[in-house]
């Protein structure tokens, strides 16, 4: 068996880029990214709800793709670039957040950070999504309040603004 195969640990040092900053931290290798963000680093913009990948409240960007942080284990983040909703709004309110505000894309707001992350991943990869693509991209984000009408409008507005920067 090669040396690397014997490379296992409970006290594990995770190296990754978090919201643009290179970060190293001691953690358990199978610890959920959601727990690391919220409980260890107090980045509470990422929400905790179902914890089994079914609601999307805990969505983060990993290498630019939307991923459920409740399903992601620390070792799966090694060398990756992770962005939370705090990172998305680090330079001021993001145009996607602005579109949600303007179009009433939220009520209680619990699903909103996850929605913003999924919309960002969608528009960064596909600036002109059609309705099917929007529906697929947001299919993992559940909202119990809005009935989705405002969310649809916000996504369309955000996409439109990207095409025609003021």
């Amino acid at each position: 068996m090669g040396d690397k195969a014997a490379d296992a640990s409970t006290a594990y040092k995770l190296s990754c880029t978090l919201n643009g900053k290179e970060t190293e931290m001691e953690t358990a290798p199978a610890r959920k990214l959601l727990s690391i963000l919220r409980d260890d680093l107090e980045l509470t913009g990422t929400k905790r709800s179902c914890e089994i990948g079914r609601c999307g409240a805990c969505m983060v960007l990993i290498d630019g793709k939307a991923v459920n942080s409740c399903l992601t284990m620390a070792y799966q983040c090694e060398g990756k670039s992770i962005d939370t909703v705090e990172g998305v709004s680090a330079g001021g309110i993001d145009p996607i957040q602005q579109a949600f505000l303007e179009e009433g894309g939220f009520q209680c707001g619990y699903c909103t950070p996850g929605m913003i992350i999924s919309v960002k991943a969608l528009l960064d990869g596909n600036p002109e999504p059609n309705d099917d693509e929007i529906a697929e991209a947001l299919s993992g984000n559940i909202c119990r309040c809005t009935g989705y009408g405002g969310i649809w409008r916000a996504v369309r507005l955000a996409a439109e603004r990207r095409r025609q920067p003021s």
Partner: peptide
């Protein structure tokens, strides 16, 4: 508490290359 709980329960993770 949650952290401690998750650390105690965390399995060893092996990364075989073949």
């Amino acid at each position: 508490n949650a952290h401690e709980q998750e650390t105690i329960q965390s399995p060893l993770v092996w990364h075989p290359q073949s």
